[in-house]
């Protein structure tokens, strides 16, 4: 009896030990499964998350209209100095005022107004209307333009002189093309959203414009009379932001119901 025990006692553990040793193989797959269980599926990589494509029903769409006012002393900028280019001076009768801050009758032009919050995770069809940026009198007209990403910007040269169009984006591709007098328009669609892309003409260093490239179509730039209008907006609550290159940003919260029209005023002071 005891002999048998001794034998078993010697054999069985040795056997089990050998088995255990041999079993210590590779269980990469089980371990990986255990580790990733419960986590969301595979990595999405670098591609941007694709939001849900929204079609807005024109019957219920809301409209935001508004006005940018300005009170106080208008910041003064020296008039544009075109002395380096006689061809440009000739295009103007006299002094060319700066376009950095343009106030007409207490109304502020060149303010970018856009929906900054409330549309996250949604995609909208790309606007197809043509936005023009013209070089006219060795000045960009208008000084501020806004386009949706993918929407073509039409850049023209109405001057009798050569310009070069040089956007200086931080997130989009940079390019710099010369455009001679009478040359065909440059049509360019920015593929990525980016605020405040400066555009320069290196030949005429006083020339500067800003392009805002938006993800969605809900934006407007205030006109000479300070007005703006953003239409076809789905009902909801949004943050509306106003941005002026010199005078900074302002925000308001708005809520618009179906087919409603809201009026917003941004008041800048000097």
């Amino acid at each position: 009896m005891s002999n048998r025990r001794v034998l078993a006692a010697a054999f069985v553990p040795a056997f089990l030990l050998a088995m255990a040793f041999a079993c210590g193989g590779d269980d990469y797959f089980d371990e990986y499964d255990a580790r990733t269980r419960g986590q969301s599926g595979g990595q999405s990589g670098d591609a941007a998350p694709v939001g849900e494509m929204v079609t807005v029903d024109p019957a219920t769409a809301a409209t935001v209209t508004g006005m940018i006012t300005f009170s106080g002393d208008v910041p003064r900028f020296p008039p544009v100095n075109m002395s380096a280019e006689p061809d440009c001076i000739q295009l103007h009768g006299g002094r060319v005022p700066s376009d950095r801050v343009v106030v007409n009758d207490g109304k502020l032009q060149h303010v970018m107004v856009w929906v900054s919050k409330g549309l996250e995770g949604k995609r909208f069809p790309v606007r197809t209307d043509m936005v023009n940026l013209d070089q006219d009198g060795c000045i960009y007209k208008p000084h501020v333009v806004a386009v949706q990403m993918g929407q073509p910007l039409n850049i023209t040269n109405s001057d009798p002189t050569t310009h070069n169009v040089h956007p200086l984006p931080r997130e989009n591709r940079e390019w710099n093309k010369s455009q001679t007098s009478g040359a065909p328009a440059i049509d360019y669609a920015f593929p990525r959203a980016e605020m405040k892309i400066a555009v320069k003409c290196n030949i005429h260093p006083w020339m500067q414009a800003y392009i805002h490239v938006m993800e969605h179509p809900y934006f407007a730039v205030s006109a000479a009379d300070g007005t703006f209008e953003i239409g076809n907006l789905p009902p909801g609550s949004y943050t509306l932001q106003a941005v002026h290159e010199q005078l900074g940003e302002q925000e308001v919260q708005i809520t618009v119901g179906a087919s409603e029209s809201t009026e917003v005023t941004f008041a800048y002071t000097g």
Partner: peptide
């Protein structure tokens, strides 16, 4: 990249480059 010197000053004409402007 990013230079102030603009591109497309010239265009291709057969096997030579010519100014793209007037």
């Amino acid at each position: 990249p990013g230079t102030a010197m603009p591109s497309e000053l010239f265009e291709r004409d057969g096997d030579r480059w010519v100014f793209s402007g007037q």
